[in-house]
Each structure stands twice: as structure tokens, then as C-alpha cells.
Design a protein around this nucleic acid. Structure first.
Lengths: 126, 126
DNA sequence: GAAAACTACATGCGCTCGCATCTAATGCGC
DNA sequence: GCGCATTAGATGCGAGCGCATGTAGTTTTC
């Protein structure tokens, strides 16, 4: 207890590390594949999910993103043709989000960039 | 090599961790002390520096923040009376930023909140 | 020593974010 | 069944960000 400095240093290094990686991911995914980091993560959740369609709520829960931000992210992805919205018959307030074939292709391509960048920045240890 | 999933998992957990802490810091620093996380970090760099005044450039270099964002952050802090800008005689393009007494007081108070939150989220190990 | 290249910081712009709010659909009490 | 609270998602709003550019001061080049 009461060891302030260590924690602050730890936090600072975490911040630097996180920002560096996140910034690079965002930039390169955008540049090479036209998707932001959040858009990529959204595609990732959809691609990973067996049913390949998810409620907005479930998506939001898995994604460190506010509900409104997610709503807009999905809107952008839909505009780009990478996902589709489908209304949910069981509960007509709900919306299903499904990744399209184009979305899957884009995801696969971007995923490689993503993994490469992570490999560059994160060692196997730590 | 080629162990994609581990790295991705590692990155995901880092993201979740970082966002959780950063969000809490931002929220509580704002709520209790009226400064954002970036503003706090700026005050921190200024308070830590012996000379208590720094060039914008040096500040930016220490701070994972773009030059324009820093410029505006300093402007906000100045508006709040927590820092002062002073022109640099040696190079009149440059600007010195100095923390005020009010800034120091605010920093000290906020710093306690900051340390408490870190202590809550970061264990001594890891 | 004047013109051109460069540097430090500020600012216009477009974007994303979170918060608060709105709309529409659902469930609950009675 | 009819109101009233609740829930899912969309959206208006204000704020901060990064990029590109603007402005003023400095260095370099010849």
C-alpha cells in the first residue's frame, strides 16, 4: 500500500503502450482497408459469432463502446456494405446485425494487418 | 511465431483494461475536480518539472497527445486559471507554460483521486 | 542581407465520441 | 384491455481529437 509512484509509472507505461498500438492499428487499418479500429472490432465480433448475426445489445456488451457510438459504427458499416441490419421478429424493437460476404472478405484481409501489427508490438511474453 | 490468437486475446484484454481505467479516471477527475484526464496529465508534467515551466514542444513530447490537442488543452487550462502562458524571449515563436498556484492546488487534490483509482484497478503485481 | 526553407504554435474543418433525449415496441399492474 | 414504466435502438448536441493549414518568428543559403 501507499506506493503511489509505482502504480503511476505502471499506468503511464500502459497508456503509452496502448496509445501507440491503438493509433497504429487505427491508422493502418484505415489506410489499407478503409475501416477504423472500432469498425474492425465490430466486424470481428460478428465474424466470430457462429450465428453471424447479433443483437446490437450483445454487440455493445462485447465491445467497450457506448450504445450510441455502436449504433453509428454499425450505420457506417452498413453504408459501406459490410454489414446488414435486419429487424428482429421476436422483439420488434431489436435489430439484428449480420456481416455480409463483402464484410467477411474485408475482415479477413484486415485481420491479417491487425495480427501483424500486434505481433510487431506485443511480444509473446508479457 | 504464428500464434495469432494469444496476441489477439492479449490485446483485447489490454484494451478492456485500459478503457475501463481511463474512462473511470476521466469521469471522476472531471466530476470531483473539473479536469479531464488529459488536463490532469498536463498539470502532472508541469508540476513534476523542476523549472515548473515548459515549452509546448517538450510537453507534447512527454504526453501522447497531438500538437493541436495539446495546444487546446493548454488553452482550456489557461482559461480555468490553472496554467499561464508566457512568451519565450529566447525564441519568440515558443511559448512557456507554467502551472499557477491554483493549478498546483488543483493538481494535488486531483492527484489523490488519481492515485486512489489506480490503486483500485492496478494490483502491485502485474 | 533578401529570399526560401523551416520551426513553434494556433486554428478551421470534419469526424467520432458520450450524454441526454426521442421514438417505438414491450411488459406489467390492476 | 388500458395506462405506465421499461427497454432497444436512433439521434441532436456539445466537446475533444487529428490532420491540414495559417501565421509569425527563425535559420539557411547564396
Amino acid at each position: 500500500m501507499a506506493q503511489g509512484p509505482e502504480l503511476v509509472d505502471q499506468w503511464r507505461s500502459m497508456t503509452a503502450r496502448y496509445n501507440e498500438i491503438a493509433c497504429r492499428l487505427d491508422r493502418e487499418l484505415e489506410e489499407s482497408h478503409g475501416v477504423s479500429m472500432n469498425e474492425f472490432e465490430t466486424l470481428d465480433r460478428l465474424a466470430a459469432h457462429d450465428a453471424d448475426k447479433l443483437r446490437m445489445l450483445d454487440l455493445a456488451a462485447a465491445m467497450y463502446l457506448s450504445q450510441s457510438a455502436l449504433s453509428r459504427t454499425v450505420a457506417r458499416l452498413e453504408r459501406a456494405g459490410l454489414v446488414e441490419r435486419a429487424l428482429c421478429e421476436a422483439d420488434r424493437r431489436g435489430v439484428f446485425v449480420r456481416i455480409t460476404d463483402a464484410g467477411r472478405d474485408r475482415y479477413r484481409a484486415a485481420s491479417e494487418t491487425h495480427r501483424n501489427i500486434l505481433a510487431e508490438h506485443l511480444s509473446a511474453a508479457d
